[in-house]
């Protein structure tokens, strides 16, 4: 087995995904290639229809690619439906935090139960230690209580989701618009938490799926800009945000409200 450090944490080669919708083919991803070194934070930026969410679902093994290869830590995404042990094995490589913090937790499971289950499914702790380990993980994300999701705030729910993902100790953590649904004053808390987690686990590779360039500036080392299923530009965060070259990236950058910003309109075609 090759040393895990030798290969990039994420490697995607010429990935394509075609959906069949009512007899028509819709190309969601039209050939995407990129690599992410271990411990790096990559932002995948795009608007609706860019294919960024489909890409995340493929990386998670929730969607089958039409063609192309996906490798995490040198291991290929298995062919066919991911089930049973293969599903579990893949899940140990990559975990995800979803956008909708109100629907991504089982309404009948408490915070601690949720994290404990993640530990149990992946045999990360003996039965007797599930509860204390779960409480410890929740403490690490700043949550010192145990309650059902409907008595937790949006920010607290997202902390549970992060703790649940970290419980599996994955190589890659995908955050799909993980702060988009949160209040402004809570967003910052979660972004700071993610920065802390990066400091504590330098080997963890982060993929931020987002449309928010301010969030990108705060959390990512590199950026991949997607438009209609293609990568139109990629580079370091500073290059993309301060010196965009592709017209779409430029337009995206100019659309971000900032101090002194004025919106401009074009006629809609």
């Amino acid at each position: 087995m090759p040393s895990p450090d030798a290969s990039p944490s994420v490697s995607v080669q010429d990935l394509k995904k075609v959906f069949r919708v009512g007899g028509q083919s819709v190309e969601a991803i039209r050939g995407v290639t990129f690599e992410v070194p271990r411990g790096e934070s990559l932002a995948i930026v795009g608007e609706s229809g860019s294919g960024k969410t489909t890409l995340a679902r493929i990386l998670m093994g929730l969607e089958r690619p039409t063609s192309g290869t996906v490798k995490l830590g040198g291991e290929d995404l298995p062919n066919g439906r991911l089930n049973g042990r293969r599903r579990r094995r893949w899940a140990e490589r990559v975990q995800m935090v979803f956008q909708d913090c109100y629907a991504s937790l089982d309404p009948r499971q408490t915070a601690r139960g949720c994290v404990a289950e993640a530990l149990a499914v992946h045999h990360k702790a003996p039965r007797s230690e599930l509860a204390p380990r779960a409480a410890e993980l929740l403490g690490r994300v700043g949550l010192h209580l145990d309650a059902l999701p409907n008595s937790l705030s949006g920010g607290q729910r997202q902390r549970v989701a992060i703790a649940r993902a970290l419980a599996v100790a994955p190589d890659v953590l995908i955050l799909d618009e993980a702060v988009a649904a949160l209040d402004v004053s809570v967003q910052g808390q979660v972004l700071n938490l993610l920065a802390d987690i990066r400091d504590e686990t330098p080997d963890l590779t982060l993929l931020f799926i987002t449309h928010d360039l301010a969030v990108v500036r705060q959390v990512s080392d590199r950026v991949l800009v997607m438009e209609r299923g293609l990568v139109v530009e990629s580079g370091t965060t500073d290059d993309i945000l301060d010196r965009p070259t592709h017209p779409y990236t430029k337009r995206l950058r100019e659309s971000v409200p900032d101090v002194g910003w004025k919106p401009t309109a074009t006629t809609q075609v």
Partner: peptide
């Protein structure tokens, strides 16, 4: 709903997701 997707993504078996969630 995303909570079921989250269970799958976590690596739980179909039987477990169905019976426990």
């Amino acid at each position: 709903l995303p909570y079921i997707t989250a269970c799958e993504a976590q690596g739980q078996s179909a039987l477990r997701v169905c019976s426990r969630h």
